[in-house]
Design a protein around this nucleic acid. Structure first.
Lengths: 230, 230
DNA sequence: ATACTCAAAACTGTATGCAGTTTCGAATTC
DNA sequence: GAATTCGAAACTGCATACAGTTTTGAGTAT
């Protein structure tokens, strides 16, 4: 029986989750020996996975000093959100131009089917997964796999902040995170009508709204990361 | 005396150049042992470098089968150009909004200083370097390092096709590649006037024009890659 | 000739060991 | 007490070895 998944892949997936969740604190040095023991692999596959994550921007690297968790600063998060605007607005534009009618209809369907779940969801992780899913599906409509790839990478690095943000909103709203599906619907309707300007404008303002919230979330994230007990 | 540059870095740089130039043919399997001998390093640092390149999209990877050169298809090149539109238009927009007057002036200065060299240049590699330099500088004006990072990656993967394209234009124009600096100037003027729409529109049409040429260049690239003698 | 089989050869996946570099902390000096 | 030195400990960088997988091609059958 052939082994289907390599050790590197397994280690990579584990590390990506850890990096996305800031299981390593910002700028923290990563000890390869200790980590390889935790992950049950030797340093060779571990370092291969770490190199991938460096190339993806989840970690940094310094010669003879090893791997470090990426820093967490307001301007870094700002950059990521602005890059999302670039990628998603163009994806929206392309979707308006060239997506098949049935695929657009499928996106609208998806929104309808998700709405009850979205409105009733209380778990930030669940809400975030649904939100990301919508954006990923929309990027698919662009038919451009580079844009999808870039978006996936950006979302991975933003995820932690968005989660903090959603938790904050839930706590302020008394146990209920607000599922803002209306913005998504507005975007989807713009695409369905092949109204490029309307759809792109809706997308831009949707992401930029989130970006503004995120600045505050970074401050909170900082305090959370330096109080390691849950 | 401390060693300043690691083996991995050196190997990575060499591989990036090779991958950018399609020193490996599309979909070709990469033999680690042979390559490590050529590069004068063992397989361990080589594989670390190869993993970075996979994460950056220069290579692909299959379990137990190793590393492969990325494929070269019209739709792949199209995707890269569309991603460039996304990134560079947003960078232009941000530059209009927030770049310092003196930095914008520096860009215009750069264009002026370059113009004689640009008009007289006959070497496609030189022309391309100058073109990329303009776009990189403009991205810098956005103040967003993610957009710069993404653009750098996209340009690396597009470079080979652009080179083919420039060579084709040179050959058709009789030994002289056309240095189309006017489009760059138009973009720079739009930014200087803080006229976002004009600058973004100019940037979009500039890249899209190049994208259309590129489709033909892919066909030529194919034929060049499969006639290995220079 | 073509298709199939299977063992040898070639190649990838990963653990391990050691050399070179950085980090840490006790001892020393001011 | 604060700063400095320096040797030991810890860690990273990389070559090598070997186990497991894939590829190749000679031999065989159709």
């Amino acid at each position: 029986m052939a082994k289907r998944e390599s050790n590197v892949d397994r280690v990579y997936e584990a590390l990506r989750r850890m990096a996305a969740d800031f299981a390593f604190k910002p700028d923290q040095r990563i000890n390869e020996s200790a980590l390889s023991e935790v992950l049950g692999a030797s340093r060779t596959p571990l370092r291969e996975a770490l190199n991938r994550l460096v190339a993806e921007g989840f970690l940094t690297f310094q010669n003879n000093r090893g791997f470090f968790c990426r820093p967490l600063t307001p301007s870094y998060i700002m950059d990521l959100y602005e890059a999302r605007v670039a990628v998603e607005c163009e994806a929206t534009r392309l979707a308006c131009t060239r997506a098949a009618d049935e695929d657009i209809a499928a996106l609208a369907d998806y929104l309808n089917r998700m709405e009850p779940e979205y409105e009733s969801a209380t778990d930030p992780e669940e809400l975030l997964a649904m939100d990301e899913s919508f954006h990923a599906r929309l990027a698919q409509l662009s038919g451009n796999s580079e844009l999808q790839r870039i978006l996936n990478n950006l979302n991975g690095r933003i995820r932690y902040i968005r989660l903090i943000d959603l938790k904050r909103m839930r706590d302020r709203a008394g146990g209920k995170a607000p599922g803002d599906i209306s913005a998504h619907r507005q975007i989807a309707e713009g695409i369905a009508a092949r109204n490029t300007d309307a759809a792109v404008t809706a997308m831009r303002s949707h992401i930029e709204k989130r970006r503004e919230e995120a600045t505050e979330a970074v401050r909170i994230a900082f305090s959370q990361l330096y109080v390691p007990d849950e």
